[in-house]
Design a protein around this nucleic acid. Structure first.
Lengths: 145, 145
DNA sequence: TGAAAACTGGATGTCAACATCCAGTTTAGG
DNA sequence: CCTAAACTGGATGTTGACATCCAGTTTTCA
């Protein structure tokens, strides 16, 4: 449903949010998030080009968030990697474009809108602050057993 | 977000629902739904193998719904083509499996659940009965202008 | 200033989704 | 029983997502 690349990107920014504003190297992020390092490098490049992340070369460098975790939403990250394609005109290309989606596509787009909204209303800071026993990347803080 | 194949499958079953219980040939469906005929044939085969559609060979044959439009939901069709993958265990493979999703994946799965619910609560009959000026496959019945 | 750390960009490989084509099979109806 | 209609299954082609590798560039710090 959500692409693998989106999943990787979200893991990475969540980790960066948890260490913000300190930068992390691609290797560090890859290890924590369990994303293939070579591919993560490409994903992070994309996020940098979209203005979500910034990078610093050389010793002590790495990748960090451009904004604070409070200012970045899940939707920002999703849209930077693979924008949610809302259905705005009839996919069959009929002249009924504009607001006149047929009942089927109206419903499909409503579902997309719900998802978009949910993502728009969640910041990285909220994810980090969630009163959940596991940390954002799933390592147990308070094992139940 | 939703694959092209799911879109094609939904168009096809919507058309079949509108003509139910009369069968339609692959060619007829392809024309109305504007789906590549050769590919539609494969999609319909999949839906038949999943028990959503049935086929009849020979003159006068074609494809038709197994159940009535009232009994088939959008989710039935979506799941037959490309099941919605809920997040049930930690995608990082950490030992925190079960109900212990981290805040990030809990939110992603909630979004999937919302979509799943929306699809589960809409039958083909409801789509057809929608008080919308355009028919399920977008041809205008009452042009506004 | 030089060497190691770290990102950058391009080339390349793999695989599944999307798509097409056709020979074969089944069936209705004359 | 024969022919045209219609589905079926396999082979094949195309493209983009996922993934890897490496040579090149930038930067820090000793």
């Amino acid at each position: 449903m959500l692409s693998q690349t989106v999943e990787y990107a979200l893991r990475a920014v969540c980790h960066l949010a948890s260490t913000a504003p300190a930068p992390q190297t691609t290797g560090q992020i890859a290890e924590v998030t369990k994303v293939p390092p070579a591919y993560l490098s490409k994903v992070l490049q994309g996020l940098r080009q979209e203005g979500i992340l910034k990078s610093q070369r050389g010793i002590g460098g790495g990748i960090s968030l451009v904004k604070t975790p409070e200012e970045v939403t899940i939707l920002d990250v999703v849209n930077a990697v693979e924008p949610i394609q809302r259905i705005r005109t009839c996919p069959l290309g009929l002249k009924t474009h504009g607001v006149m989606l047929c009942p089927l596509h109206r419903r499909l787009d409503n579902a997309l809108a719900m998802m978009e909204d949910a993502f728009k209303n969640t910041t990285l800071a909220e994810v980090l602050a969630d009163p959940n026993p596991s940390t954002p990347l799933c390592e147990i803080v308070n094992p139940a057993r």
